[in-house]
């Protein structure tokens, strides 16, 4: 029992350390990689063009040609996945991330074996599972979209959450009677999966807003914005992940209500946790509607999604640690 627990702790710490390392590797790609170089080149070009434009009003044709020229050297490497040194660092970063995720899984499984129950019965375990979901979601997305150079933006909150989880550490052990129910497996798992997935759209929306800010005023987030993918890509990531996470979240809330009915005597009682879950649900519902409403797409939608994730974070930390409600025992 204790051996499992120790190995779990060890895997957890190692996974976190590997994530930090992976973050350094992908940062190398982010800073020096092809995408970055290309964007810097484009920016310099734009600057040049602007300068030329200021001098001579007939620079249009030249500018277009120059753009063409700039695109040509990049073209050969675009066919094959880029093979420069920074890209190699990026791929190594992802490989490290996969390794970290495997250790992360091991930490979770061992924790479950040590406690003899589903390994998400307190805040430490919850954060462990949630950060794993975020990592896996990101790995899936990286396989589908060219987003590798953005990995650091996801790993940063993940490592932060894992660190916070570490400060909330408790010994593996059995649960209080109120939590002894198969609904723990269902309800909390749904909450973890949904929250972990929502982290990704949250990050994508913040990046989206940074790009918008940069477009409005090129001096804001200058260095960052030029390394970000297009707004449409960020928006698509946010939307597609939200669309998958939202039904899971809804299911989690419903499952919680069913559990509350058999544990506390009523299915909904506006307990602080329930209330903030409801608020987050309403905000994400608004997000989905906003994306289908003229005048609300783009920036407003990104704000709403960010607010939704802020709500999820608030629900976990503030409600569990500060307010006293029926969910308090699930805490530390």
């Amino acid at each position: 029992m204790t051996a499992y627990s120790q190995f779990s702790d060890l895997s957890y710490t190692t996974a976190a350390a590997i994530y930090v390392l992976a973050m350094l590797f992908v940062l190398v790609e982010q800073a020096f990689g092809r995408v970055a170089r290309q964007r810097v080149a484009q920016r310099d070009l734009a600057k040049q063009r602007a300068l030329v434009g200021a001098g001579a009003p007939v620079a249009d044709g030249d500018g277009a040609d120059a753009t063409h020229d700039a695109a040509v050297p990049a073209a050969p490497s675009a066919g094959r996945p880029a093979s420069g040194r920074p890209e190699r660092f990026g791929r190594m970063g992802i490989a490290l991330m996969v390794l970290g995720a495997l250790l992360h899984v091991a930490a979770l499984v061992l924790r479950g074996l040590a406690a003899g129950r589903a390994p998400w019965g307190n805040m430490y375990e919850y954060l462990m599972a949630l950060s794993l979901v975020a990592v896996v979601t990101w790995l899936v997305l990286v396989r589908k979209y060219p987003l590798r150079h953005l990995t650091a933006f996801v790993l940063l909150p993940v490592v932060f959450l894992m660190f916070v989880g570490g400060t909330l550490y408790v010994e593996a052990g059995p649960l209080v009677p109120a939590l002894q129910s198969y609904w723990l497996v269902i309800h909390v798992a749904a909450a973890i999966v949904a929250s972990g997935m929502f982290l990704v759209p949250g990050v994508a929306s913040v990046l989206y807003l940074m790009r918008t800010a940069n477009e409005g005023n090129p001096r804001r987030f200058r260095r960052l914005a030029e390394r970000l993918p297009g707004k449409d890509v960020l928006d698509r990531i946010a939307y597609r992940t939200s669309v998958l996470a939202f039904p899971i979240y809804t299911f989690g809330v419903f499952a919680g209500a069913i559990w509350a009915e058999s544990a506390w005597g009523r299915f909904w009682d506006w307990d602080p946790k329930e209330t903030v879950s409801f608020v987050a649900w309403v905000i994400y519902a608004a997000y989905l509607h906003a994306r289908a409403t003229a005048g609300w797409r783009g920036k407003p939608a990104a704000w709403i999604n960010t607010a939704g994730f802020a709500c999820i974070v608030f629900n976990f930390f503030f409600i569990n640690l500060v307010t006293a409600g029926l969910h308090s025992y699930a805490g530390v």
Binding site: F278, V282, H289
Partner: peptide, 17 residues
């Protein structure tokens, strides 16, 4: 409907605080 949704979220919050 969107504005009402926001109002609903906003109005529910004091209940938690």
């Amino acid at each position: 409907a969107l504005i009402l949704l926001f109002l609903l979220a906003l109005a529910a919050l004091p209940g938690a605080m």
